[in-house]
Amino acid sequence: MSTDTRNVQPLRVEGVTVRFGGIVAVNDVSFTVQPRTIHALIGPNGAGKSSCFNAITGIYTPASGQVRLGETVLTGTPPHKIARQGIGRAFQNLALIGTSSVLDNVMLGRYSLTKGQFMAYGMRLPWTMRQERAHQDRAAEICDYMGLSHRLHTPAGALSYGEQKRVDLARALCVEPTVLMLDEPAAGMNSSETAMMAALIHDLRDDLGISVLLVEHDMSLVMGIADRITVLDFGRRIADDVPAVIQRDPEVIKAYLGGAPDESGESAEAAAISSEETSA
């Protein structure tokens, strides 16, 4: 996939608070995704990671604080205009349109980069057709990079789970993002698939020169590729540092071991953290 020199700006989350009624999902959280880094957002279930993602992409309106991309304030921008600023997002739960072809799904990512309303497309005006072909070529190029070129015209619903994950990622890349947001890219994958995903994310950053912000539970992936990690617990930021420091942070270990060490998901992650720690 051709590399372009994108003007990658730092994504700053500044004192963002998200409330649902009386519940504070994200409490005064700040962190900065530096250009061309892989930044991980981790924390136990319910820590506010997804709410934080939704606040950045404008799905939720923060009660206070703001999100800035370079000098542009994203908070308060109509949510559908945020993609145009260069924020691409892949989803946790495979939000593809199963009956549409892979190309059609991926082309949704070009929505904010294209123009043309009902009549322009309905009358097949020459400029809309030219635009459509040019953007389909680029979308196909991205699919090719993701190893999906032989699947372009297959309904997305007919693909395997791993392939659907890649379609989702390809769609996010079609936004031509400067910041790529990945919500649990390795969820439901086995260890070899996770390793491949980690390599892919690393390559994406290197090839495209973009920032990656990811939420992930798989500690081997996070510790392996992240340049910096922000840890959330009960909506608060409890740590923000490089992986080597995070692994030794007593508050992080406490958050993962928590008051209920028997809870399956959390203890597994805690074990993963401590094993990473011993190996480090």
């Binding site: 559908h80 145009r84 929505y111 904010s112 009902f118 497309y121 459509e132």
Partner: peptide, 26 residues
């Protein structure tokens, strides 16, 4: 023509998942 192109893609995204549609710029 409209349903095969950009407009139809936007509509189908709205139909299936409004959050995805919004994040993609619809």
């Amino acid at each position: 023509g409209a349903m095969k192109g950009r407009v139809g893609r936007g509509w189908r995204a709205v139909r299936d998942n409004e959050a995805v549609a919004t994040v993609m710029g619809v």
